[in-house]
């Protein structure tokens, strides 16, 4: 099971065993990491599942689609080069060990 580490806004670190094929957003929600809001439930409609991809096998993640790329202009916390919408990031054996930072605001 691919592990994901979430660095939460208060600095706390939570390591979660994810499942292949589920997204980082779903992994966060089912682990009770409520700072990943995901208001639209993962349909690429709201940009409230913003994370910064911090460390680990970053190259194993798919590139952002055109829509995601444009939507990242409208996250509540500032966009950085590592910004992604976590509903668009599927877990796989190759992503094991990924570390993402969760911003303090999603609205």
């Amino acid at each position: 099971m691919p592990k994901v580490t979430f660095i939460r806004p208060n600095g706390e670190t939570t390591v979660v065993d994810g499942a292949d094929g589920t997204s980082i957003m779903q992994t966060a929600v089912s682990a009770g990491i409520t700072e990943v809001v995901a208001e639209c439930g993962g349909t690429l409609a709201c940009a409230t599942c913003h994370v910064y991809v911090h460390d680990g096998p970053i190259d194993a993640l798919p590139e952002a689609s055109g829509d995601e790329e444009e939507m990242l202009d409208f996250t509540a916390c500032p966009r950085e080069p590592t910004s992604r919408l976590s509903c668009q990031l599927p877990l796989s054996p190759q992503t094991d060990g990924l570390v993402v930072r969760v911003p303090p605001e999603q609205y």
């Binding site: 690429l44 409609a45 709201c46 940009a47 829509d67 444009e70 939507m71 202009d73 409208f74």
Partner: peptide, 10 residues
């Protein structure tokens, strides 16, 4: 056009 939508909300 989800980015238009976010822009509109802003």
């Amino acid at each position: 056009r989800p980015a238009d939508h976010l822009a509109a909300r802003r």
